[in-house]
Design a protein around this nucleic acid. Structure first.
Lengths: 209, 209
DNA sequence: ACATAAATCCTGACAGTGTCAACGTGTCAA
DNA sequence: TTGACACGTTGACACTGTCAGGATTTATGT
């Protein structure tokens, strides 16, 4: 149950920061972010209730770190397939972004939810916002790359297409994660193969007819 | 500030249930759902801290009512344009669903967020789940109607297309609402005309080439 | 080596919270 | 009129985040 107990008889924990973030992840998985408390984190790390303040300032600061860590993992998840692909395979790269995005959301449901709960986070935090920008950039650049490769140039619809792609990928991830609420349509309409959905989405990146 | 004070010298409020839901909306707009408390609701309704329990049971019950009310408004928002259109205008109807969805999200940002926070709600609640199903149904039926009208029949991609449409509309609404976090790309990439985005989305409902 | 600064953690207190039981108060029907 | 019941109040409980002040360990500079 406990995450990383403090070594006995040691006034200083040694690695409290990491231990606390691990506790956050554990609790958020068990109880959701609503069930998260600084004091419970401290408890699981084997430390007094006031200790977390020295590392994160306050609760918002702790969640901000947790979310930032999530964005870094998200970037990693996208890169796994993305980096393997030939730069010439612009279409494959595009799809890899979507797959990596959805894969991360499903593998880290609880953390994914927290990452987009802006009311809970410090939106002035530089590192957090930078990571968010990076995710957005890898999508837009992949799209632009594919358009360039297929000699489509820049058309006025492209802006809307970028928004749509971003919306669809994020929306699909959100709906997949929030499956509790969305188990509507008992045919399992909303649990299709992510691959097939992404295939459909890819069509917006194709040249107009 | 206060929502609906209890009439003075009246032990019974008379319309406490509605007054409390109004207070919820007010507080959630001001502070977000994180800043919501049963006691503050009671305070704004001019009533003691224990009173809400008689109407909603507990906090989760109160939020469930609030979310259900939101789904009903969402259905209303979709219907506004939808019902005006000629049944033969299957494409127009389809687009009206998306427009109504996004319009509601933007008009009731705070409530919209709560509606999809399944951890906060009672997912066993019949009325809540029924409303959710209805929203999903109006989208799928509109899609199916358009496919029927354009003589496409039912193809195997249709399932993925429904998911994609649902994902895109919801994702766009979410991103529009959570704009704080997503004001990335200072060109305002994520604040495009919803109409243009929906136009792009409509392409998936067209016959294959 | 030693003093001093800094980082880290603890303790105790404070107001605020959700929930519950016990208790008033009004309403309505038998 | 009498009782049942819905509605609202009150007080208590354990829990929360935050803060000030103190304890302890580590790092730094001389």
């Amino acid at each position: 149950m406990a995450v990383e107990q403090k070594a006995p008889n040691r006034y200083h924990h040694g690695d409290l920061r990491r231990a606390l973030l691990a506790a956050v992840d554990e609790i958020v998985q068990e109880l959701g972010v609503e069930g998260l408390s600084l004091r419970e984190c401290a408890r699981r790390a084997g430390v007094s209730h006031g200790a977390p303040a020295h590392h994160f300032g306050d609760k918002r600061g702790m969640l901000t770190e947790y979310a930032t860590d999530g964005f870094e993992k998200l970037l990693g998840s996208i890169s796994v397939e993305f980096d393997k692909l030939d730069p010439a395979d612009t279409k494959g790269k595009l799809k890899a972004v979507g797959k990596g995005y959805v894969a991360f959301a499903l593998a880290h449901r609880a953390q994914f939810k927290v990452m987009f709960r802006s009311e809970l986070l410090d939106n002035e935090n530089e590192r957090l916002m930078e990571r968010g920008r990076q995710v957005f950039e890898i999508l837009t650049k992949s799209l632009a790359g594919h358009w360039a490769a297929t000699n489509q140039g820049w058309r006025k619809e492209n802006l809307a297409q970028i928004s749509l792609a971003w919306s669809a990928v994020h929306g699909f991830a959100v709906l997949a994660v929030e499956a509790d609420l969305l188990r509507m349509g008992e045919e399992g309409l909303l649990n299709p193969d992510p691959d097939a959905v992404l295939d459909q989405l890819m069509l917006i990146a194709e040249p107009p007819r």
